[in-house]
């Protein structure tokens, strides 16, 4: 049987018949090949060794599908891997669910599947189960993807907001705003878009190294939607402690700052797809930073602030570059739509 001759997805590709079979066997399986998936069972059977299991899911609706530094496929794999990794899990396997609009070009689908396969391989996870649905034109915008992921716990590692104490350090593994502004500027057709590159990356490897080789990591979260502002606000309100951040220590690329200024966005609220915020006890911070800086995804790692005691409502404060003070809040109102 040859690969599908159709250049575009038809409704029948999701109908469960011959075309569905063709799509799965010829377009999807070869790109994601692994023993579990190849069985095409109704469920995947996984062997794992830890006592507890981590489980997460996320859906991806980014527009445009292809952006500088990534695409919806890479995003769908990295996003779920990162959700597992920051929770202190070693990512094991993902599911992949595609909802495709009738008329979607096979060329684009192949490109996305290539990217999914490659990203999964680079991050040492298998796509072990999946589903494909098609909907009539207009039912979705081109393609939506859901991935769920499972991971096993790393021995001796237990992260939680309840572990935070005043004087703990707040660390980020690199520059902020890259993903959101890359996608937004591409969408708006801004001239400087080519300079901007999404930071979309799987953090499983780096975080695994950190958790296995340093003590004192108390909590981690990936700073995705709502950006650094949302992540810090969640950490502060969840731990009932204040956080104090120094603006001068936050890594920001000048081209990204320029794009944020032009579009009128507060860069602290812009989504990232390859950045985590870690809360680390002070005596471990230097080791933590050292490991990060030796890894390609952590070269610009910076200690941006610290946890402090709170007497009233937990607050995140920013010491601005000029020495002024202001608060950082959970972003509200118009989040940038369809950024991930």
């Amino acid at each position: 049987m040859k690969a599908a001759k159709n250049k575009k997805i038809l409704l029948a590709h999701g109908g469960g018949g011959r075309l569905t079979e063709q799509l799965i066997r010829h377009n999807i399986l070869p790109k994601l090949r692994n023993d579990v998936l190849a069985k095409l069972g109704d469920s995947a059977k996984l062997d794992f060794h830890s006592e507890s299991l981590f489980f997460t899911t996320d859906s991806y609706v980014v527009k445009p599908l292809f952006f500088n530094g990534g695409d919806i496929g890479k995003l769908a794999v990295c996003g779920t891997i990162n959700d597992l990794a920051v929770a202190g899990a070693r990512p094991l396997a993902l599911s992949l669910s595609l909802i495709i609009e009738e008329g979607f070009e096979f060329a684009k689908l192949d490109k996305i599947l290539d990217s999914i396969g490659q990203t999964a391989k680079e991050n040492n996870v298998d796509i072990v189960t999946g589903d494909t649905k098609t909907v009539e034109a207009g039912g979705v915008d081109e393609i939506f993807i859901n991935t769920a992921g499972v991971g096993e716990s790393i021995e001796g590692v237990e992260l939680g907001l309840d572990k935070l104490e005043a004087t703990d350090k707040v660390i980020i593994n690199g520059s902020i705003g890259d993903h959101g502004l890359s996608v937004m500027s591409q969408r708006e057709g801004l001239e400087f878009q080519t300079e901007l590159l999404s930071d979309c990356a799987g953090l499983g490897g780096l975080i695994g190294q950190l958790l296995e080789n340093t003590d004192g990591v108390k909590f981690m979260r990936d700073a995705t939607r709502g950006g650094l502002a949302a992540t810090l606000s969640e950490i502060s309100s969840g731990s009932k402690l204040n956080i104090e951040i120094h603006e001068k220590n936050i890594p920001i690329k000048p081209s990204v700052q320029a794009a944020a200024d032009m579009l009128g966005f507060d860069i602290l609220t812009i989504a990232n797809e390859g950045k985590f915020v870690a809360i680390v006890k002070p005596e471990s911070a230097d080791d933590f930073v050292k490991i990060c800086k030796a890894h390609p995804l952590g070269k610009e790692t910076s200690i941006i602030g610290k946890v402090t005691e709170s007497s009233g409502e937990p607050t995140v404060r920013l010491i601005t570059k000029i020495g002024g003070k202001r608060i950082i809040q959970m972003p509200y109102g118009r989040e940038l739509p369809r950024i991930c």
């Binding site: 507060d266 920013l318 010491i319 601005t320 570059k321 000029i322 020495g323 002024g324 003070k325 202001r326």
Partner: peptide, 9 residues
């Protein structure tokens, strides 16, 4: 003015 905390100094 607000974003840079100018009032506070």
């Amino acid at each position: 003015i607000f974003r840079n905390g100018i009032r506070s100094i």
